[in-house]
């Protein structure tokens, strides 16, 4: 992305140089029933961080709380050094923190182009067209299908559109919730190829995944969540051979490294 260097100029210099830092977060769907119970997560600029863990360990809840979709009961979230705890999702998008949910992540009744135009609406008028065109350049399939209703896309194409729609606003941090879930292995591979493209653009990525091998192959670091808490964080290299990881996964309730 050629214009990837255009950033919000009033972001202060970052403490510890972190793009995203969630500290001791407590959050859940209902008050009094926290699913995330004091979890921390960090991502450095341009880093890809995988968030792993067994089913029900609170991975999705953690990232939804970070992006302002769920109420945060305790803890803080900082985005490039600025406190964004509890800010609503639609405001965080304007700051460059963008979330791609796991399911129903495109507007089925809008066309491919309208999905992208909707996202581009947060940008200043003159830049919108160019940002949409650069998505078509990045994902030629979407350019070809631009007048089609998104509901008629295949599963893999939908994930591609969801990622493209997130990239329209030039996110500084992109958070994805299980982008390969429910896809056939071949399509899941396409999604991870897409993410490799995004990574090459220099976007910081936080990736929630069940597919441990694929996630670790893409990531620089991985954090494992168990029962709503971050239990360990390791470099992605050597992650699968790590004894502690094996113990957590094999010992954890109902899940193992695939």
């Amino acid at each position: 992305m050629s214009d990837g260097a255009q950033r919000d100029p009033d972001v202060p210099a970052t403490r510890d140089g972190l793009a995203l830092e969630a500290r001791d977060l407590v959050a859940g769907y209902e008050p009094g029933l926290p699913i995330v119970q004091g979890a921390s997560l960090t991502a450095r600029p341009r880093e890809v961080v995988a968030v792993l863990g067994p089913n029900g360990s609170g991975k999705s809840t953690l990232v939804k709380a970070i992006v302002g979709l769920l109420p945060v009961t305790a803890g803080t979230v900082e985005f490039f050094g600025r406190d964004i705890t509890g800010l609503p999702a639609h405001q965080l998008v304007r700051q460059g923190l963008v979330f791609v949910p796991q399911t129903e992540n495109v507007f089925a009744r809008l066309t491919v182009r309208e999905n992208l135009e909707l996202a581009a609406a947060v940008l200043p008028g003159p830049r919108r067209r160019g940002r949409i065109e650069s998505q078509y350049a990045l994902f030629p399939d979407l350019g070809r299908l631009r007048t089609l209703a998104a509901g008629r896309l295949s599963g893999g194409q939908r994930q591609m559109l969801a990622v493209a729609r997130a990239l329209v606003v030039e996110p500084r941090v992109l958070i994805l919730d299980e982008p390969s879930a429910g896809l056939a292995p071949r399509l899941a591979a396409v999604v991870f190829d897409t993410l490799r493209t995004v990574r090459a653009l220099g976007v910081t990525i936080v990736l929630v995944e069940q597919n441990v091998r694929a996630a670790v192959a893409l990531a620089d670091r991985a954090t494992v969540l168990v029962e709503g808490r971050d239990r360990l964080t390791r470099a992605a290299a050597g992650f699968l051979e790590d004894a502690e990881v094996a113990r957590l996964y094999l010992g954890g309730p109902g899940a193992r490294a695939r």
């Binding site: 992006v67 639609h90 949910p101 909707l118 609406a121």
Partner: peptide, 9 residues
């Protein structure tokens, strides 16, 4: 919910 995630108030 998705509308909020793409920046719609």
């Amino acid at each position: 919910a998705l509308a909020r995630m793409v920046g719609v108030d």
